[in-house]
Amino acid sequence: MRIDYHTHHERCGHAVGKLEDYVLQGIRSGLAQIGLSDHMPLLHVKPEDYYPEMAMPMEELPRYVEEVLELREKYRGQIDIRLGLEGDYIEGYEEPIRAIIEAYPWDYVIGSVHFLGTWDITDYRQTAGWEGRDRLRTYEQYYDAVIKAARTGFYDYIGHIDVIKRFGYAPEQDVTHLEDAALQAVAEAGMAIELNASGLRLPCAEMFPGPRMLKRAHELGIPVTIGSDCHQPERLEQYLPEAREALREAGYSQLLTFRDRKRFPIPF
């Protein structure tokens, strides 16, 4: 069974294509399940302070949910559509995040850390934020946020758990202890992670997480799902064959799927 659980579309502003374009691409390519999982609207940055095209406007969130549910019925029997959300973790905004998660019938919610304060570490337009910054301290802040996200109980799995490496900025010091602490928090919370293949087309040239961290996740008994993190319909499933091979090498033989916030493992 082939699945892709991490996708974005035009509502978020920095992707292209309508939701239906991704569904049709999934049908053409023979996907069994597609997870539509666009970004949660930003809660901690005023819209007038956004960089252009950063996130879905709040008023679009119910329209997004409604459209996914309509597409699920329209294409029933051709592809299994799951309603997802990539829900940012922002320290200090736990209650508004909880309210969004509890307001809609999600099949799954991805817990991702993109922001340290108002700085989006995953935005190529904001890489100047690394200038003059203590990289080890930045990695410590990032993984502390991942740990706190895992402990909220809000999310079904952590997305691109080591995305801090995205643009190739890394401290000289070893950060294995930070990575392992984050994985330990995920394991203690009974959560999963994703293997996000998109890093192969980014400056880091490595999936999220990388091989060592993925193998450690398997040793800790952390289950995994898989996603391309595509922002264009034609990139649906991009690098997922490589991701499945990486999972086999790490010792995995199952992927998680989700429905109504419940887990359903499948062999691959």
Score class of each variant (00 low, 15 high):
residue 81 I to R: 08
residue 243 A to C: 06
residue 173 Q to G: 11
residue 81 I to K: 03
residue 111 G to W: 08
residue 226 I to C: 08
residue 222 I to T: 07
residue 130 W to C: 00
residue 212 R to L: 07
residue 259 R to P: 07
residue 80 D to R: 08
residue 139 Y to S: 10
residue 202 L to N: 13
residue 15 A to W: 00
residue 18 K to N: 13
residue 189 A to S: 14
residue 197 A to Y: 00
residue 199 G to H: 03
residue 95 E to I: 12
residue 197 A to W: 02
residue 266 I to V: 15
residue 97 I to M: 14
residue 251 G to C: 06
residue 16 V to I: 12
residue 170 A to Y: 09
residue 203 P to A: 05
residue 175 V to E: 06
residue 208 F to N: 13
residue 265 P to Y: 10
residue 44 H to S: 00
residue 28 R to E: 14
residue 190 G to I: 12
residue 228 S to C: 11
residue 85 L to W: 05
residue 180 D to G: 01
residue 16 V to C: 04
residue 97 I to N: 02
residue 260 D to I: 01
residue 263 R to H: 09
residue 257 T to A: 14
residue 25 Q to E: 15
residue 230 C to E: 00
residue 243 A to K: 02
residue 186 V to L: 08
residue 71 L to I: 13
residue 5 Y to K: 06
residue 241 P to Y: 08
residue 56 M to R: 02
residue 68 V to D: 05
residue 256 L to I: 12
residue 144 D to C: 09
residue 73 E to W: 03
residue 57 P to S: 04
residue 119 W to L: 10
residue 84 G to I: 03
residue 179 E to C: 02
residue 7 T to N: 13
residue 21 D to M: 00
residue 25 Q to S: 13
residue 101 I to P: 12
residue 238 Q to P: 00
residue 57 P to K: 13
residue 133 R to H: 07
residue 5 Y to Q: 11
residue 206 E to K: 13
residue 140 E to A: 12
residue 157 Y to M: 07
residue 67 E to V: 09
residue 156 D to Q: 15
residue 209 P to T: 04
residue 142 Y to V: 03
residue 123 D to R: 11
residue 149 A to Q: 05
